[in-house]
């Protein structure tokens, strides 16, 4: 029953919820609270993790209209169809496995939703206009992380060079010797390469080297890179 003669006005809804949240409980025990909290934690964390994994599926990634071009190109590559029947889907190459990097990538991927809504690349012409800059973003990310996502499956240590084609074995050995990373050579492995990609990739590497001051001491040998790609410009961009 409400006391209409109460001198204090009844607090608002949010104030009552806030006060109730911080009031001591005279109903349940500490043990009950702990067990209930533990179970609720499992349920909420499980739900969160499940949702996160759902966004890693190919259906989710290609659910947007703007990803159709990407999907078509990827379906023509060895990462989609191959003799061994192993498939790398979008998230295998574009989403890190480690938790901290994965959450960061997921938050940054919100930009894809924005561009889908804004129609930034909703026509083939617009897509082609943005192809180089989109590719450059991914190259930068992969170069910066030493092609971390490639290395989830491909590692130099696991390669049996005598079984590889002579050209591939030679290229991989030189990549080890020159401290190169996967994306230095395999830029168009899953999507078509835009025109002028070599120059763009070179500028990506130069920008990264300038940003980091090349502190890691790694040498980016464009002589080797150009040789792999069939170019004739043999210029070392950064040297130790």
């Amino acid at each position: 029953m409400t006391d209409n003669n109460s001198p204090e006005p009844r607090p608002g809804f949010f104030r009552r919820v806030w006060n109730g949240f911080w009031s001591t409980s005279g109903v349940v025990t500490v043990g009950f609270t702990l067990i209930a909290g533990f179970l609720a934690g499992i349920i909420f964390w499980g739900g969160f993790h499940w949702s996160m994994e759902m966004t890693n599926t190919e259906e989710f990634c290609t659910g947007c209209h703007t990803m159709e071009t990407n999907l078509g190109e990827y379906r023509e590559t060895i990462h989609y169809n191959n003799r061994s029947g192993v498939r790398a889907i979008c998230s295998d190459c574009h989403v890190p496995k480690e938790w901290n990097h994965k959450v960061k990538a997921k938050i940054m991927a919100v930009k894809d939703v924005y561009h889908e809504v804004m129609g930034t690349i909703d026509t083939p012409e617009k897509y082609e206009d943005h192809r180089l800059s989109m590719a450059a973003q991914t190259w930068r990310k992969m170069k910066k992380s030493d092609s971390r996502e490639c290395r989830n499956c491909h590692k130099f240590d696991y390669m049996d060079f005598p079984v590889q084609e002579a050209r591939a074995a030679d290229a991989h050995q030189r990549a080890i010797d020159d401290d190169m990373t996967c994306i230095d050579c395999h830029q168009g492995i899953a999507h078509q390469l835009p025109e002028g990609y070599q120059e763009k990739y070179k500028s990506v590497v130069e920008d990264l080297a300038a940003d980091t001051g090349n502190q890691d001491g790694k040498t980016v040998s464009f002589a080797a890179l150009r040789a792999f790609l069939g170019g004739d410009d043999a210029t070392d961009v950064t040297e130790r």
Partner: peptide, 15 residues
């Protein structure tokens, strides 16, 4: 900016 927000989000949901 996106890099910053992503890093903050990763830290908030991380250790």
């Amino acid at each position: 900016m996106l890099e910053f927000l992503g890093t903050v989000g990763g830290a908030v949901l991380g250790l």
